[in-house]
Design a protein around this nucleic acid. Structure first.
Length: 656
DNA sequence: GGGCGCTGTCATCTG
DNA sequence: CTCAGATGACAGCGC
């Protein structure tokens, strides 16, 4: 168990270091809790802030500092200290860096000794040596007792003890940790109203942990207590942990100088996590963290550097297949957002991506590499897509703006001849037609990135017009363009990028009037499409509003029917009450023994069960609706002749 | 011939 | 300031 803790902790440390070196900190506890989003701490400068984790707040308060968790100075301080400790730990594998591995909660012996003291990892950096020594001492001290639970501030993990007798305690602790997570969830809304013990356990510093775990507040061990499913899944990952650790450690030592290649598409890794079921033998358990380098992506996973992580919890596979039919068990606890954030970081070195991997990706992907899942973005890539036959050789849109390549082509033009037309052929809308079928937006067509049904319609019409070109169907602007002798159509002038349009006018030696004409043609063409979109949008809005009106009309009719039914029911109840009142009043007698006249008196039932006989006033209505009853009550204060309870007897007719 | 719908165009505003 | 887009208003055209 000592080795297990050692390897496990070191694995977490090294993985955390690797993430920290690229500016990312992952709060694994967030995944285990299944509630919080993962903590991503990026090196965003002094203004960077911790997000979505309460432990930073606890960490801040643990050291006795009431500092706002988003304090930039605090952020910088903790980040620097953490990185320093991580680097130190990297050079000394035998040590347990306090800051990274966080505190470790040991089982408290029954004799109440101090062996189970949690480690104060939130202390000052000066205490690091002492803490490390404490780690070692406690490791030695607790080896024979069994290491029951390891709770990390940054990575909450647990491992059941090998000793069967202590399993119940561990389960209790595990459940306490689970409850602690639940409390943290609840506490986000109301921090000061949660149960004290769990809150203290969650928020406590190491000293508080000691008190809690060593005191009687710890619930007694429960036998037969079931672990939550996610903990069971998690613990099942360690079945063959001891056999896996030596190999991983040897691999780690061998590949430590170059542990991880950054030539990995983390986006791809995010999508393809958990593919181990397909590529691994059944005997090889899926690691929880698996950071697989690109260079070793085609090799045996066990030989990968990521596999060197003793307790690999992630699965960062660079070339994993996408048919994830059986994702890793712990993979479900990982939020994809962490990979999103990792991807958002500029890892650089993208130009060093293994060509083999790129080939594999091209082979795996049916869609173009740059094509976005959203159909709206496919136009840009399609306009310069290698799939386009005409674009495969020319470089019209090879740059990001899509203009540089064209400009170089245009600058080489010496006349309004076929060379210029050839240069513009690449962004011809004909090439775009086959890539924008799926677009349904209203955006105005633009050769760069706009996608629109009207754009498609216009292109389609353009293509059809090219096929069925008849002079009399040409628009006025089209004829004007042809009169200028330009090798472009009005449609092309309208839809080409503005950079290209400006360069076109500069390169064609046009006069002022011709420039104005081209500008007008372009403006009118764009406005025409905009008007079409606007009208279609307006029509859709009208249709939508009509649908809403119909729905509201139906709802109004239903409410009217309901009101009618309610009024009828109320009327019937009032009638029954009136009948009952007459019956009751007929049984009562006044102080002279005369029966009460229902014409002059009425019954009033209060909410507390009291039934009062009240004289009818002139304004009182026999129907005794709610409002009139209230007025009647107020108007008969002190006039009630009798106060009757349910004990009124029929025999005497008098109130008890 | 007038009404209506569609379309193109202009002017203006906004981002 | 320029550009693109949105939109109201107007005019032309066909039914």
């Amino acid at each position: 168990m000592h080795h297990m803790k050692k390897y496990f902790t070191e694995g977490l440390i090294q993985f955390t270091i690797l993430l920290s070196l690229i500016g990312v900190r992952v709060d694994v506890d967030s995944y285990f809790s299944g509630y919080f989003s993962p903590l991503i701490e990026t090196d965003g400068g002094p203004s960077s802030a911790f997000i979505q984790t309460p432990f930073h707040h606890y960490r801040d308060t643990a050291a006795g500092h009431q500092v706002h968790p988003k304090c930039p100075e605090l952020d910088y301080f903790f980040t620097s200290r953490r990185l320093l400790n991580e680097v130190r730990a990297l050079g000394s594998p035998a040590r347990f860096p306090t800051r990274v591995s966080a505190w470790l909660v040991h089982l408290v012996p029954d004799d109440g000794s101090d062996a189970g003291e949690p480690l104060d990892l939130s202390g000052d950096p000066d205490d690091e040596e002492i803490d490390a020594d404490n780690h070692r001492e406690e490791d030695d001290h607790t080896t024979g007792e069994g290491f029951g639970l390891s709770v990390s501030q940054d990575c909450t993990v647990s491992r059941p003890s090998c000793a069967a007798g202590e399993l119940s305690k561990e389960e209790t602790l595990l459940n306490r940790v689970n409850e602690e997570e639940e409390v943290v969830k609840e506490e986000r809304g109301r921090e000061d109203t949660s149960p004290a013990s769990l809150n203290q356990l969650t928020q406590s510093s190491a000293l508080e942990q000691e008190d809690l775990l060593g005191s009687s507040s710890l619930p007694p061990p429960l036998s037969g207590l079931e672990l939550p499913p996610r903990w069971q899944d998690f613990l099942s990952e360690f079945d063959d942990f001891d056999s896996m650790v030596p190999q991983r450690m040897s691999d780690l030592e061998a590949e430590l100088p170059n542990p991880i290649s950054y030539d990995v598409s983390l986006q791809d890794a995010m999508v393809s996590r958990g593919d181990s079921a397909n590529g691994r033998p059944a005997s090889s358990r899926t690691p929880l963290f698996h950071l697989e380098s690109t260079n070793s992506s085609h090799s045996d996973p066990s030989q990968s550097s990521a596999g060197a992580l003793p307790s690999s919890l992630f699965c960062l596979s660079g070339n994993s297949s996408r048919n994830n039919t059986s994702p890793s068990q712990m993979g479900g606890y990982l939020d994809e957002a962490v990979f999103e954030h990792i991807n958002m970081l500029d890892l650089g070195n993208l130009d060093t991506i293994d060509p083999q991997m790129l080939d594999g990706m091209e082979g795996d992907m049916d869609t173009p590499w740059l094509e976005d899942s959203d159909s709206g973005l496919s136009l840009e890539s399609s306009s310069r897509s290698p799939a386009s036959p005409s674009a495969s050789s020319d470089s019209f849109c090879d740059d990001e703006g899509g203009a540089t390549g064209y400009s170089s082509e245009v600058e080489s033009l010496s006349s309004k001849g076929g060379a210029c037309a050839a240069a513009y052929r690449d962004w011809s809308p004909v090439n775009l037609v086959e890539y924008i079928w799926h677009d349904h937006t209203y955006s105005t067509p633009q050769a760069q990135n706009s996608t629109s049904s009207s754009w498609f319609t216009a292109i389609k019409q353009e293509v059809m017009s090219e096929d069925e070109a008849e002079p009399e169907e040409m628009s006025r602007d089209e004829r004007r363009v042809q009169a200028l002798g330009l090798p472009f159509s009005a449609f092309q002038i309208v839809n080409m990028p503005v950079e290209n349009f400006l360069e076109l006018m500069d390169s064609q030696n046009l006069s002022g009037s011709e420039v104005m004409l081209l500008r007008d043609i372009r403006r009118r063409g764009k406005n025409k499409l905009a008007a079409q979109n606007c009208r279609k949008r307006k029509l859709d809005t009208i249709l939508t509003l009509q649908g809403e009106v119909e729905g509201l009309s139906v709802q109004r009719d239903a409410l009217l029917r309901q009101r009618s039914h309610t009024a009828k029911a109320l009327s019937a109840a009032a009638e029954r009450f009136e009948t009952l009142s007459r019956t009751v009043l007929g049984q009562l007698r006044d102080e002279y023994g005369h029966p009460l006249n229902p014409e002059h008196y009425t019954l009033h039932c209060s909410a507390n069960g009291r039934v009062m006989v009240q004289p009818r006033t002139n304004t009182a209505s026999r129907t005794m609706t709610g409002r009139k009853t209230v007025r009647n009550t107020h108007g008969s204060i002190g006039v009630a002749l009798f106060t009757c309870r349910r004990e009124c007897t029929k025999n005497t007719g008098r109130c008890v």
